[in-house]
Structure formats: structure tokens, C-alpha cells
Design a protein around this nucleic acid. Sequence first.
DNA 1: GAAGATTGAAACCTCAATCTTT
DNA 2: AAAGATTGAGGTTTCAATCTTC
Lengths: 329, 329
Amino acid sequence: MIAEVPSVRAASRQLVRELGFLNEAFPELECTAAQCHALLELELHGVLTAGELAEILLVDKSSATRVVSQLLERGLCDAVEDAHDRRRRRLVLTAQGRARLERVHAAANRQVDGALALLTPPERGRVLEGIGLYAKALRRARLQAGYELRLIRAEDDPDVARIIRSVLGEHGICGGAGTALGDAEVSAMSAGYRPPRAQYFVVVDRGRVVGGGGFAPLAGGDRRTCELRKMYFLPDTRGLGLGARLLSTCLEAARSAGYARCYLETMQSMERARRLYEAFGFRPLTAPEGATGHTVCNAWYALELGGREQSRGRGRRGRNEALPASPRH
Amino acid sequence: MIAEVPSVRAASRQLVRELGFLNEAFPELECTAAQCHALLELELHGVLTAGELAEILLVDKSSATRVVSQLLERGLCDAVEDAHDRRRRRLVLTAQGRARLERVHAAANRQVDGALALLTPPERGRVLEGIGLYAKALRRARLQAGYELRLIRAEDDPDVARIIRSVLGEHGICGGAGTALGDAEVSAMSAGYRPPRAQYFVVVDRGRVVGGGGFAPLAGGDRRTCELRKMYFLPDTRGLGLGARLLSTCLEAARSAGYARCYLETMQSMERARRLYEAFGFRPLTAPEGATGHTVCNAWYALELGGREQSRGRGRRGRNEALPASPRH
DNA sequence: GAAGATTGAAACCTCAATCTTT
DNA sequence: AAAGATTGAGGTTTCAATCTTC
């Protein structure tokens, strides 16, 4: 278990209680907490359906429809029928709803302002960063909950091949020499990656393979360098942090297998992937290494596996790492 | 309004939703969120009454008694009658309750661990610090909500004199020369502090004065130096952060009145007060200044009022102040 | 059959009133 | 009268079943 878990739990419990165990509703607003949240999201998104609202607010869809019917009844939002699909009811704020929202903002701003005023400016920045990071981590953990990560097996081969082909197809690569699709291994990945020196992992959602990635010795490179290879995800599974989880697993496994350095090649057009590599500390290179035969690749990276992972984030880290876990009572 | 307010609100909204808008209860635990929280607090405190539980959990006392009766019914806690006061029911965990608690811990640890595992070690430290700071700030803002801060008026004089005498009495000072009690002004503070060069503030709780503090030119000092004077609070109002609020107000007012430096004298035995001064950036001096006549004081501090307040906290700051407010949509 | 939305039943929380003991 | 605890009424949430439209 991670060392910070108990302290984070304690602090987080306290925070949940402070923020309103359930109903932080300001009584003077004549608005329940759920209604406030719904109004805020309607303001943010412009148009929403009840189902979308439920998803955003992380409440049951029945709760969402009930909140919506309250808002409709009170004239705070309007429902317009979708022309193409009469099941959908698209919700928009009314002028009255916008007016109410003003009061909600005023009250909430006052509360948060009152709290932040008791902190120093640098502390305020830390509050923002800390709760933002935690919210994001909880969200990703929830979204990833159903996904399992394991080494590839022979029966995964067709799925994996299909994923690789479809993702490369997205980027306009349709096979041929100089592309990863030209690699003979694509159709039988399980045979090509023998642990411990080469490992390929798949990410599985209720039995369905949705992505994968692995590493192997760099062809034409030295013994201490591995190549990160064929990391791809189906479109609807992106943005969940699965890539980070997979990459983290790969790097750890490569380190255990005795590699000191990890090289990879990709394309400039794969922006999200490149951002991920950079977040993990990969440094861009100006020229390819080894002899992979992937002439369409035009971006190359490498990471020293030496010690611990590099710190991730938006680059403004550096100093002051690893704050001591301050004991909270 | 403080610049971070909107971003903190957005992040905090997301966090509340993630942590269970209301019932984060893990269904496999057969325990509602309220029951889990109650068990955790019983474990922490050993013995509690229903009323104390309500106060800790920030729920209505009726909710607390209902949770308690559920726990009693399920054999998770026991109620023992107080011998001296038959109104009180003291609650303790049963062996069964402790066993259930193990499962609660396991589930909660797993969830938080899963989230923190998606962050880097330094990020985990930031999460802990951020949510801890925010929880503390919200708590203080809530506790301070009923308290008002204003300049002293003539009708406050008897209350203020009584507070000063009683607090000094706590520290074994019973008047006489060389003590603040010997000062003629104690009985008529409102007359002794004339704005803008001398100001005395009182903290009021529903009309009742509970503390005060102010500043005046330092006797025997230069024109640019003021002395922070007679800052005292009744015992049951300490620990709410009222001192910080009052001190902050005083320093701001002194700055506006043209002072460039703030001096103060106190006693080593007043630890909490000294910690507060140090948190605000006051530096300890090795000898007294001016001619205050307070020979019993044995600790002296000064703060340059020049620019902005110094950063508070436990000293481990330094570098990297004022992180930019990262936009968290 | 599946997606979007709704409704009924059971459990929860708060507010206000009430009961018991000091 | 005040402190500690309890009870009744009303509103909220979830789960499961249902309705409507595609």
C-alpha cells in the first residue's frame, strides 16, 4: 500500500464532511445541492440531456430526471424535443435559470473565498493543485476499474492485430514497407514477445481486448536498450489514463528485465501519445536509432530507466520533490 | 474575490462528485457511508456519545442517533450508560464492529491506493497537502462564520478588560508593575486607541466580546514602528483561526496607517501565540525595544511590513512560491 | 432488442417538535 | 431552563421495473 493512503483518507474524509456530507445546499438559495450542480453543468455545456447530466454528476439517471423535472417545474430550464430522435429531451437554461445561477455563484464564491482568505497565496495554489490532482486520479481510477492488464496470450492475437491495423489506419497508414504494419509479427504478437527480454501486454475490458503495448530488444541496438513497441488503444478507450498505466507497467518490467534505457519511435501526428511519453520523462531525439525499418516514423524518444520514474506533470516541477507526508492530527 | 476561487470551486465540485455525492457506500460492505464514518470515528476516539458523533461528522444529531441505533441493532457497537449522568449514552465498538472496520479499511485503502497509484510520488505529496489545507481552511471558515471583527467601542471596555485580566491570570500574572495589567489603559481601551495611528479590534460572537487585539505607536520607538498590543482570546474560542484573522487585519491596518515595521513583546509560555507570530513571519529578537515597561515579557518579535505578508506554514516552504493557478476547466 | 427517460419502493438525511434527565 | 437524545414529516437518493421510441 502506498504510504500516503491513510493520511489522504483522513484528510479526504474531513473534506467530504466539510463540503457537505450530502446536502451542502445553501438554504437561502432555495436550491438543493443537486439542483445547483445541474444548473452549473447546464451553464457549462449549454445543452444536455438528462442522461448526460446523470453521467456528469455521477448520480443515478433516475435522480437526474427528478432533478430535471424540478428545474422544469420551477422554470429554471426548458426542454426542447430533438427533431431526429423523439426519445431525447435536450435541456437548456431559461433566463430565470441564468438569474438563479448568478445567486448560486455568488453564494459559492463567498464560501470558497472565505476559506481561501484564511490561507496564504502560495497555499491557495497548493490547494488548487492538490484537489485537482486528486479529483483527476479518482476519476481515472473509477474509469479504469473495469480494465485489466495482463501479458498477451495466443488467443489475443487476432484482436491485437485488428487493433493495430485500425489505429494505424486512422493515421493514414495502410500497410507496406517502412510501416509497423509491414512487420511480420503483427498477426502473431504473442509468439514474437518472449519474457523476460520481450513482453507485450494487453488491456482487457470484460474479456474484450481494447489495447496493448510492449517492449523488446532494440534491433541493431546495444543489449541495455529496449524499444517500446506497438502501443495502441481503440478510440473509445482513450483519455482514461490506460496509456499511463500500461506505459508504467512496461517501463517497470523492462527495468526488471535488465534494461537501462528505453527507446521508441512514433509519428509527430500522434500527439496524445507524444505528450504521454514526454510526461514520463522521455526526451526527444533528433535522429532514429537501431534498425527498426520504420521509415514512416518521424519522431524518436529515449528514457534512461536508471532509477525511479521521472516526475510527470506539466513540466513545472523540478525542485522540491517528495514533500514529507505531513501528519494530519 | 480571490483569483483561485473559480478553479478551486470547479475542482472541488468534481472531487465531491467523485467521493460520492452522498453515498460513497461500497455496497459489498453492507454499510452506509454514514455508518462507515461513525465506525471510523469510534475507532479513533474510543468512546463517543451520539451528540459528539454528530458534531464530528457534521451531520444533524438526529442523523447521528439513527446511525447509532443501526449500529447497535447490528451489534457493531455497544452503549454503556454513564454512571453520573443518565442522559448520556457512551458508545464503544464491539469485537464485531472492529471486524467490520477491518473490511471498511481494506475497501477504502484499496480505492485510495488505486487512485494514488496513478500519480507520481511527488504528486501524492501534493494531493495530501492540498486537500489537508483545504479541509482545514473550510473548517476554520465554518467555525469563524459567527464571529465578527470590528473596531472597539466604548461599551466594549468592561468586556475587554475582563478578558485581558482573565487571560493574563491564566499565565500567573495578577497585576502589578511590569505587567500589562499594570497599564492604566486596560479598563478603558476604547479611549486609548485612536485611529489611524492606534487601533484596537474586538472579535464578537453574537454580541458577546470574546477577544481582541490592536496596535499603537511603540513607546520610545521611531515613528515608523508600531507595537502589536494586547491580543487575547477567551479559552473556548482558541484554535479557530481567529487569531490569524485578527492579526491579519491588524497588520493590514498598520500598513495603511503608514507603519513600516511591527514590534511585539510576549512571554515564552504563550506558545500558541508565538507560533502564530512566527507563522506570519515575525522574527524573534534577542532584546526588547522601546520603553513599554513590561518587564515580565521575555520574548520579543518584529516584522517588516514592507510588502505582502510572509508565507505562513510550517517553514518548509521557501522556493517555488505562488504556483500559477493551473486552469482545471 | 437497445437507448433514453420515467415511476414505485425502500432507505437516508434534515428540520422541528418532543421526551427525559439534570 | 438547558443538555442529551428521540421521533414524525418531508424531501432526496438509489435500485429495479416500466414505458416510449428507435
